[in-house]
Lab assay of single mutants.
Amino acid sequence: KKVIATKVLGTVKWFNVRNGYGFINRNDTKEDVFVHQTAIKKNNPRKYLRSVGDGETVEFDVVEGEKGAEAANVTGPGGVPVQGSKYAADR
Rank of each mutant, 00 (worst) to 15 (best):
R91T: 11
E59D: 02
N16V: 01
I4D: 05
P45V: 11
V35M: 10
R50P: 08
A39D: 06
S85W: 05
G79A: 08
V3R: 06
K67A: 08
T57W: 13
D32C: 05
Q83E: 10
N25P: 00
V17N: 07
W14R: 02
G76M: 06
V62Q: 03
N43H: 12
G53T: 10
S51C: 09
D54E: 15
W14F: 11
N73E: 12
A72E: 12
G55H: 10
F15S: 01
K7E: 11
V52R: 02
A72Q: 15
R18E: 04
K86N: 09
A69Y: 13
K42A: 14
A72G: 09
V58K: 00
Y48P: 10
G55W: 06
N27C: 12
E70C: 13
K86V: 11
D90V: 12
R46F: 15
G76E: 05
V80M: 10
K2S: 06
Q83M: 10
G55T: 06
D61W: 04
L9Q: 13
D32P: 05
V17F: 09
I4R: 06
F15C: 01
D28R: 01
K42L: 14
T6I: 15
Y48T: 09
R46M: 14
N43F: 12
E56K: 03
P77M: 10
E31Q: 15
V35H: 01
N43E: 09
R18C: 09
F60G: 00
G20W: 02
K7L: 05
N44E: 05
V8P: 01
P81R: 08
E31D: 12
N73R: 09
T6W: 12
R18F: 07
H36C: 04
V62N: 01
T75I: 05
G10T: 00
T38I: 06
I24E: 01
E31L: 10
Y21W: 12
G84E: 06
L49K: 06
Y21E: 03
E70L: 11
A88M: 07
V74D: 01
E31I: 08
V12T: 04
K42E: 15
L49V: 11
R18D: 05
A88L: 07
P81G: 09
T6C: 12
K13F: 03
H36G: 04
G20V: 01
D28Y: 01
R26F: 02
L9M: 11
E59C: 11
T6R: 10
T38G: 08
K2L: 05
V33M: 03
V52C: 10
G55Y: 07
E70K: 14
G84A: 05
T11Y: 08
H36A: 04
R50A: 08
V3S: 08
D28A: 02
N27Q: 13
F60S: 01
T75R: 11
N27T: 14
G78T: 10
V33H: 01
F60V: 01
N73G: 09
T6K: 12
L9W: 09
E56F: 03
A71F: 00
N16I: 01
P81V: 09
N73M: 07
V35L: 13
N16R: 03
A5M: 14
V8S: 03
V58S: 00
G20E: 04
E70P: 00
V33G: 01
N73Q: 08
N27D: 14
S85T: 06
K30Q: 14
P77L: 10
Y87H: 13
I40D: 00
V12P: 01
G53I: 07
D61T: 08
G65M: 07
D28C: 03
V35S: 01
D32M: 04
E64K: 12
R18N: 13
D90H: 12
N73S: 11
F60Y: 03
S85P: 05
N43S: 11
E70M: 11
I40P: 00
D90S: 10
E66I: 12
Y21H: 04
N43G: 11
A39E: 14
R91W: 08
F60T: 01
A88K: 10
A69D: 12
D54L: 11
V17R: 08
G79S: 10
K42W: 09
V63C: 12
V17A: 09
V8Q: 06
T38R: 12
W14E: 03
A89C: 13
E70Y: 14
Q83L: 11
N43D: 08
E56A: 06
G55D: 12
F34C: 02
V33S: 00
H36M: 03
F34D: 01
D61P: 00
V62Y: 03
T75Q: 13
P81S: 14
N27M: 12
K1Y: 15
K30H: 15
K41Q: 15
K41G: 09
G78A: 15
T29K: 05
A88E: 06
F34L: 03
V52H: 02
A89E: 14
N19R: 15
R50D: 06
P77R: 12
S51T: 11
R91A: 13
F15L: 01
N16H: 13
G78E: 12
K1F: 07
V8D: 02
V35R: 00
T57D: 15
G10K: 01
V80L: 12
G79F: 04
K41R: 10
F23T: 02
R91M: 15
R26P: 02
G22I: 00
Y48H: 15
Y87M: 08
V35E: 00
T38E: 05
R46Q: 15
D32W: 02
V82Q: 04
G78F: 10
I4L: 09
D90M: 11
A89L: 12
K42P: 07
A72I: 14
V52W: 06
V8N: 02
G22T: 00
L9D: 09
N16L: 02
